[in-house]
Amino acid sequence: MGHHTFDVERADKLEDAARYRYLSAEELLWALDLSGAETVADLGSGTGFYTDDVAPAADRVWGVDLQSAMHEQYREKGVPENVDLVTTDVADLPFDDNALDAAFSTMTYHEFASEESLGELARVIHPGGRLVVADWAASGEGESGPPADERYGLGDAVTALEEVGFTVEFEAIRTETFLVTATRATQ
């Protein structure tokens, strides 16, 4: 698993409002619990569908994606002034230690989940900072999203986050997806 990326030729599907049935903008904002002063990273930002929902609630948002072509599509659509785009792997984030107040992944965890990537998130999110993961569940029926063999179980995701120093505060399993909110443990 990991490093399977969404086909940029199908990027228009990332702008479909039907995506909100798996994670609404309101639920994402609730999970992030932002005050408006935070620096946040969207991991696997793609065309900025969810980035655009978070931008008005944060001071600065980093749209992180492995594919520069996704950033090009986002630029064509229009990037909010407080959003900066960075093309990189989650395992190699260009941020200083403790630089982020929060990070989130919407249906991309299965693309980057590895001990190296999660360790990198623990490095760049400050102690007490928040990580929100919504992704396709291994228990899902597979009608949407990636094939079942590319998905993670909720328990596996929780264990992986805890092993790199996050404390899981909320977890939920749904028909096709799971949602986890966690904070980086204070040192």
Results as ranks from 00 to 15, higher is better:
His4Asp: 13
His4Glu: 15
Thr5Pro: 03
Ala11Asn: 07
Leu14Val: 04
Ala17Tyr: 00
Arg21Ile: 14
Ala25Gly: 14
Glu26Thr: 13
Trp30Tyr: 14
Ala31Tyr: 00
Asp33Val: 00
Gly36Val: 06
Ala37His: 07
Glu38Ser: 10
Val40Glu: 00
Ser45Ala: 14
Gly46Ser: 04
Gly46Met: 03
Gly46Leu: 01
Thr47Asn: 04
Phe49Leu: 11
Tyr50Lys: 01
Thr51Ser: 13
Ala55Met: 03
Ala55Phe: 01
Ala55Glu: 02
Pro56Tyr: 00
Ala57Val: 02
Val61Ala: 11
Gly63Leu: 05
Ser68His: 07
Ala69Asp: 15
Ala69His: 06
His71Val: 08
His71Ile: 06
Glu72Leu: 10
Glu72Val: 13
Glu76Lys: 15
Pro80Val: 13
Glu81Ala: 15
Asn82Ile: 09
Leu85Lys: 02
Asp89Ala: 11
Asp92Val: 02
Pro94Gln: 08
Asp97Val: 07
Ala99Met: 04
Ala99Asp: 05
Leu100Thr: 02
Ala102Ile: 04
His110Asn: 09
Glu111Pro: 03
Ser114Gln: 10
Glu115Leu: 04
Glu116Trp: 00
Leu118Arg: 05
Val124Glu: 04
Gly129Asp: 10
Val132Lys: 01
Ala134Asn: 15
Asp135Gly: 09
Ala148Met: 12
Asp149Lys: 08
Val158Glu: 08
Thr159Asp: 13
Thr159Met: 06
Thr159Ala: 14
Leu161Asp: 05
Glu162Arg: 02
Phe166Glu: 09
Phe166Lys: 09
Val168Asn: 03
Glu169Thr: 05
Glu171His: 04
Glu171Asp: 12
Ala172Trp: 01
Glu176Thr: 03
